[in-house]
Design a protein around this nucleic acid. Structure first.
Lengths: 148, 148
DNA sequence: TTTATAGATTATAATCCTTCTTAATTGATA
DNA sequence: TATCAATTAAGAAGGATTATAATCTATAAA
């Protein structure tokens, strides 16, 4: 089933209204798998919704996060929370140079999930990588500036 | 070699002065492996250094991070950066209830390190887990409140 | 012993992201 | 269409971190 429709139904079920602003945010996420920050969504949607408030963006993203249809990424290099519409298990790669976040699909899920380690009950597993992304690495071939 | 001495030498080598405040911060980290935030260090050291400024804490932690003797943890549940004096490879476990951060020592290092994936050059691997820590899980045995 | 100087500390202001507050508006339902 | 709770928008507020500017300190030079 279409994820957008699924979200709309889920929201309704939870007594959350589907307003034009919220639909626009969901559509943006659907069409831009770039792990945007709230700010990025805001800047884009302002064109169609000149009165849109940042608070509305945060509000909607939180609701989507609550129903587990959007994942919060809070280990980015720019100190902002980024939002991921892809909720299937995957890894993230953060480029130390351009700060973009890329998806890395694992061959298999790690086994730690659901395990008990030292008595701690593991409910979520998060893995991410840092380094130099393909694009930045290629650009760098010419110059040899160290990053950071 | 003692890590503290190693740090002091490294700082000197980098032209960073070892002031009483900085030594106190390093000693705190050495004796408190609790992944403290800057605030926590500040509150503790204020007793011995009443005029200590938060800016000094941040400044010193940044320098320690630059020489790779302290790791920044920025995926904690409380929106603060936490600092880890243990720079050996290990995992972190964040309790969803008490928000404490615990170390989990892996049996072996993951193999992704140094790999090239989709053309991205991986330089760092980070894994952390979330769930309910041993202590919170035990306490909960009686009551049955859901977290969050 | 003075002076110079480079870096460190402190207090405070500034910044930035995110959340909160409030009043007005909107949407879902009957 | 009327009702009422939910939502929006604007700005204020909050909180963590960083920047600034005025001392201060340690060391070295004179």
């Amino acid at each position: 089933m279409n994820k957008k429709l699924e979200i709309i139904q889920l929201l309704k079920k939870n007594g959350v209204k589907t307003t034009p602003q919220r639909l626009a945010i969901i559509t943006f996420l659907e069409n831009n798998l770039i792990h945007p920050s709230a700010e990025q969504i805001y800047e884009t949607l302002k064109k169609d919704f000149p009165t849109m408030s940042l608070a509305t963006i945060y509000n909607t993203l939180d609701k989507l996060n609550e129903i587990k249809k959007v994942i919060k990424i809070n280990f980015s290099g720019d100190n902002k929370v980024h939002y991921d519409y892809n909720t299937h298990f995957h890894y993230h790669f953060l480029c130390n140079i351009c700060n973009n976040i890329y998806d890395i699909t694992p061959k298999e899920k790690p086994e730690m999930l659901g395990a008990i380690n030292d008595g701690h009950h593991i409910e979520e597993t998060h893995t991410y990588f840092k380094g130099i992304c393909k694009s930045c690495f290629t650009k760098r071939k010419g110059g040899k500036n160290e990053h950071k």
